[in-house]
Simulated assay, not measured.
Amino acid sequence: MINWVLRGAVLLWAVFFLILGVQGVLDPATYTGQFGIAADGVAANTVRADMSAFFLVSAVAAAIGALLPRWRGALLVPAALYGTALVGRLIGAASGDMVGPAIIQAMIVEALSLALMAGSWWVLSRPTVVAAGQAGDEASPV
């Protein structure tokens, strides 16, 4: 049961970030208000490409990891991306970068994303034990 709940949570997470990534490809100004990034002039192209790539790759990897049993390791891709972003923000805060409510919110989202992806990978990668006597099911060794 927990496996289905985790898969559902990861898929909902993936859909949200897929939508965010597609919105950013179509209109990089999407990221302006959410992340305080200037998306004008030549910066618009960089924001469109880099931010959208971050969200799209993490969303697709999460969906693959949730849906394909042999590809659970794909969940470590968004875990690594969001973990790296969180570490970067923590280093920035420790170095004196300005930290406002939007940065704190982003750090919370990154920490929760890291926990969801790494935790889901860990749980979904473990063998499951099936009660003896259930027809059609094979018990996996623990």
Rank of each mutant, 00 (worst) to 15 (best):
G133E: 10
G36Y: 08
F35T: 11
A115I: 02
V25G: 04
L112H: 00
L67C: 08
V25Y: 06
S58I: 02
A74E: 04
A9T: 05
W121P: 04
D40S: 13
G21L: 13
A29P: 12
L11K: 00
L114F: 11
A94L: 05
R72Q: 10
V22R: 12
E138T: 14
I108V: 11
V25K: 06
A53Y: 07
S58L: 03
T46M: 11
G92I: 02
G36V: 00
A139V: 15
D137H: 15
A106Q: 02
N45H: 13
Y82C: 00
F55H: 12
L112N: 02
W13C: 00
W122M: 06
A118R: 01
A94T: 04
T32C: 14
L86E: 02
V99P: 03
A44C: 10
L112W: 00
W122A: 06
P69W: 07
R89P: 01
L11Q: 01
S52K: 09
S95D: 10
M98P: 09
A74S: 09
G100M: 07
V142Y: 15
A85S: 06
A61Y: 05
A38L: 13
G24I: 04
A43Y: 10
T30E: 15
S140K: 14
A38S: 14
V15S: 08
V109L: 06
T32Y: 13
V25H: 06
F16W: 09
I91F: 04
G21K: 15
A74W: 08
I64C: 05
E110N: 01
M98H: 11
D27T: 09
L112D: 00
V22P: 05
G133F: 09
D137P: 12
G24D: 14
N3Y: 08
A102T: 06
L116M: 06
A39G: 12
P141C: 10
Y31F: 15
L112F: 01
V60C: 07
G100T: 01
I37Y: 08
L20D: 15
L26N: 14
R70E: 14
T128P: 03
E138Y: 14
T84M: 03
G136M: 12
A79I: 02
L6S: 00
L114H: 03
P78Q: 03
T84L: 06
L86R: 03
A59S: 10
G36E: 12
A132D: 15
